[in-house]
Design a protein around this nucleic acid. Structure first.
Lengths: 151, 151
DNA sequence: GGTAATTAGTTCTAACGCGAACTATTATAG
DNA sequence: CTATAATAGTTCGCGTTAGAACTAATTACC
């Protein structure tokens, strides 16, 4: 019976992540961005821009969704699209000066808001947590691959 | 500088949860349900039904969303709404016999699919992970409350 | 007992989220 | 060189998401 082993950990993982999201999202919304928009702005911060493909793989947002998120950021003047000079299929996305200003204003304060929660764990607890999460993630990715392989 | 402390743990937490979701969701979709629908069916399994309020608080789905998810399950004949005998405002949701059959067919296999990933952690690792996740969740919930309190 | 504040669900809007079909461009094979 | 395959983004359909405004029923207060 797998239940006794799996269920408690799944529940804690889900609850913890959802608690993180609720705290993080509530703070992000104060900046006037949605969480995915914030994710994009932060990913583009301190870079010279990148392609949709790279942006998608870093943020784990699929390309179909990314088009819409970037559309809305572009409409607000925070990012700009530019044709790639090397590949006619690619589009580069980068922060506008206004987007850059927003990034500067928003990123560090957000981390500072979250930090106390993480600092409440002892140093060794954070290391432990990181290690176990990574271990579990790798195992879960193997499950995904096995499923994809079978069908 | 909060960055060095916060970012690595956040990243692992997000990646691990997303890996869990991808694995779990891909398997769930084989049953013909969406992940939130699966969540509802599993929550209603082995019960005599419950109100929207209770269903929402167990699944962490807000009431506005819940209406739509239950609508679609009801349209497929998997759950049924019934007026509460004790409170005219409440609606009870419960599995139909067909929903019950689906639950029986789908729940344990899903756990069995996920189990190997969790079993790849040693027993003590799972306990450790659970403990640290709970600790972090409680601290994050405090952050949320502080934010809500300030505004 | 009757108004006022709560509470349970529904409806609405704007934004995600994924996967599949589509267009345009680039790479590969023969 | 040309037919074919692969790749980058966009578009579309369907479902989910939170939050706010709304309706109906219940509870609390005086």
């Amino acid at each position: 019976m797998s239940r006794a082993i799996v269920v408690p950990v799944i529940r804690e993982l889900a609850r913890c992540y959802q608690a993180f999201q609720r705290a993080s999202d509530a703070h992000i919304r104060l900046s006037g961005l949605t969480p995915p928009q914030f994710d994009i702005v932060v990913t583009l911060g301190n870079t010279d821009g990148m392609t949709f493909k790279e942006l998608g793989s870093r943020t784990l947002i699929t390309k179909g969704t990314l088009t819409g998120v970037v559309d809305r950021l572009e409409a607000r003047g925070l990012v700009a699209r530019a044709a790639s000079p090397t590949d006619g299929r690619s589009t580069l996305v980068k922060l506008t000066p206004e987007g850059e200003r927003l990034f500067q204003r928003v990123f560090e304060p957000h981390l500072a808001f979250l930090a106390p929660a993480f600092e409440s764990l002892p140093e060794c607890g954070r290391k432990e947590l990181e290690k176990r999460l990574r271990q579990l993630r790798l195992a879960l990715e193997r499950r995904s691959h096995e499923l994809a392989g079978q069908e």
